[in-house]
Amino acid sequence: MNDKYILALETSCDETSVAIVKNGYQEIASVVMSQISEHELYGGVVPEIASRIHEQNITWALEKVLRSANLKIKDIDAIAVTEGPGLVGALLVGIMVAKTLSWLHNIPLVPVHHIAGHIYASNLEKPMKFPLMALVVSGGHTELILMQEDYSFEKIGGTLDDAVGEAYDKVARLLELGYPGGPYIDKLAKEGVDNYDLPLPLDDNSLDFSFSGLKSAVINLLHNEKQRKKEINKADLAASFQNRVVKILTKKTMRAMEKYQINNLALVGGVAANSTLRETLEKQCQAKGFHFIVPKLIHCTDNATMIGAAGFFAHQLNHRFDDQLKAKSVNELTKE
């Protein structure tokens, strides 16, 4: 088989990222320009600012990637771009740039669903085995996706309200930690003990999640302690919150594996960078003899390499952008 090079662009949220991926699993070059410092001030991503920064950085990111790969656009077999979901204005920049390059060089343009990208970050780590269960956890998603084979996705569970990363951000804001909240809470939780009485959210027989109740419980707890003029132990609260989150994610994931009789698990998305979640799921998988993949930290958060990894398969399956296709903000991975 000839080597296939995919040029990938990802601008769905607050990272301007461009990468070149070989044969779907080998990262040849990658640039991720984070905008965290620009959004930190607001405690979350400001869509208009994100779009502006993408627009300013994208050609530079392209040049840097091609240079470090020592490749030219004509060496590229296909261009993969995140089509959504994400911030529409931000997605649009990547899509317009990708369409222009595809037009100029007559290279196939492959739309990639952001979540497919997160899942295929696994392939960069070690080959994915099917059937596979993917737990997708990020600032915008909390989903259980069942894959019978490459590029077939079936959503079997999801969040009814906040995504898990969103809950982390909100709780971090309540505790006056930084943004994004995940890494701060994860770090602080290691210094505390789980001794606050928080509920295990949506502890039912379904495969769905809910995190807004847990967040409200934290708000109420902070409020009540303040009324009683009691000092909050932030580390203990971080530990209590994180333990509930990890516990429910683990519990429902394992239930899904059992229900569908799956032995392969991939933990992906920005929250997959959470050390406690990684360790807990890995231990559980080891105990049950399951095959477990979690991408490297840099491939958990948004990046174009994962879009190139997924784009390789989407290209093989002949997924193509037509001229008129636009950015999708809310589209279902499974509804192709």
């Binding site: 627009e55 994208i58 050609t59 649009l92 920049v93 317009m96 740039v97 222009t100 100029l104």
Partner: peptide, 8 residues
């Protein structure tokens, strides 16, 4: 986005 990509 289009013009910069073209020129680049």
């Amino acid at each position: 986005s289009i013009a910069k990509t073209l020129a680049w």
